[in-house]
Structure formats: C-alpha cells, structure tokens
Amino acid sequence: MNTDSKKINTSRISISELMLPSHSNFSGKIHGGYILSLMDKIAFACASKYSGRYCVTASVDTVDFLSPIEVGELVTLKACVNYVGRSSMVVGIRVISQNIQTGKIKHSNSSYFTMVAKDDDGNTVAVPRPILTTLDEVRRFYDSLRRIKAKKEHMEDTNSFDHTSREALDRLSDYGAILTL
C-alpha cells in the first residue's frame, strides 16, 4: 500500500454524551447550537485522524434538525470521511439520540462538514489519497462529488444574479413582497 494513501474507513469515529439540563434551551429541548458544537468537534477529530494533521472547518452543509433531543437522552454522533480532495475532506456526520429508559432511538440530524488540513505554519497541506474498500464508501464519495458540484453551480448562479434588474424586481410580487423603492 502506498504511504500517500489510506483506507477511508480508518477515519470512522463516534462519540456519545448524556444530555444534561445545562445543554437545554428555553423550551426544555437540547439547544441546536450545542449539537452543532459537538458536530464540529467530531468533524475535527475524524478529519485529523484520517489526515494526521490539524484540521479546520471550511464549511458546513445544510443541517436539518429532524427531531428534538430531550434532556436525559444519550446522543451519539458518528462520523467518517466521505470524500478527499487535495487538502480538504468532506466528513459525513449522523446524530442519533436514544431514550435510555425506553431504548427508543431517533435520527436527530445529519450534515457534511468540509475540513481542511493545515501544517504547523497554518498552510494547507495535502492529505492521503483515499482507498475505498466498500460500495457504500464509493456511494458516499460520489454523493459528495454531486454536492460539491451543486454547491459550485449555486455559487455561480448567485454571483451572476442581478437583484437590481427590472426582471428581478418585478418577480418579487410572485413571492408576496411589496416593493416601495
């Protein structure tokens, strides 16, 4: 095996934590910001484990909170590198919560964090090439490529859109907006 390559499954990591009242928001549910903080920590650990380098968060794809997490539930986060670029990695994260009294498990959310490997001077550094060993890893790799492509296309559309054009201003009424310029 080439030393510049690494099995992608070596990045797998999971953490579990009991949700305490101090983690809750005003409605008594676990605060989404706290879960995001845990997700960022596991993304860092996963990417650093794979790359052998210090990693920083470059972006976070959509985070949809699918079901609320209650105080007293055990939250488990599972992460794995899904895609590897030159110095970046896409880390897939799945969050589940479990009522430890009933055993009921809920999928709370999933997201994708793009992490970038850095050297000691803060410069980006190349990471090992991925070795894919299962068809699930192949699917996740291609899913990441599709998300990256869609994100680039969205940015191109956003950068070329002229919100001041007559057409754009006229179209606001389709959305119930009232323009008073």
Rank of each mutant, 00 (worst) to 15 (best):
N25M: 13
I69M: 03
G85S: 09
S110Y: 05
Q98D: 00
G85E: 04
V60C: 13
G52K: 04
T102Y: 00
I30A: 09
D40C: 09
Y54T: 13
I96F: 01
S97L: 03
M39E: 10
I35E: 08
Y83H: 12
Q101P: 00
I30L: 06
T62I: 12
S16V: 11
T62Q: 12
K106Q: 09
I35G: 05
S87K: 01
G85W: 03
L36R: 08
S37E: 13
K104Q: 12
Y50D: 07
G32D: 12
D61I: 07
K104W: 02
S59I: 09
L74K: 08
F26G: 14
I30S: 05
H31T: 04
G72P: 07
S51T: 07
L77T: 04
N99Q: 03
D64Q: 10
H107F: 05
F65Y: 13
I96Q: 05
I69E: 01
G32E: 11
R53H: 15
G72T: 07
G52H: 09
S24T: 15
S88L: 04
E70G: 00
A45G: 04
G72C: 06
D40F: 07
S108P: 01
V95F: 00
R94N: 07
K106W: 06
Y54W: 08
Q101M: 06
A79C: 02
T76H: 05
V81N: 00
I105T: 14
F65I: 11
I15K: 14
I105Y: 00
T62G: 04
S108C: 15
S16Y: 10
G72E: 05
G32V: 11
N109I: 08
F44N: 10
V91L: 01
D61W: 08
T62N: 10
T102A: 02
A47E: 08
T76P: 02
T102E: 03
S87F: 02
D61M: 06
G85R: 00
T62K: 14
R53G: 03
P68H: 07
F65Q: 08
Y54M: 13
K29S: 14
L20S: 13
F26E: 13
L18F: 12
S14W: 10
L20K: 14
N82E: 06
V81L: 03
L18N: 13
K106Y: 10
V60R: 02
F44S: 06
D40M: 08
T62W: 02
S14T: 14
I96V: 12
I93Q: 02
C46Y: 06
S51K: 07
V81Y: 01
E70S: 14
S87N: 03
V71Y: 04
S16H: 12
G85K: 01
Y83A: 00
I35K: 06
A79D: 04
L66M: 14
N25D: 15
V60Q: 07
S87P: 00
K104H: 09
V63I: 15
C80I: 11
S24Q: 09
P21T: 10
S67L: 06
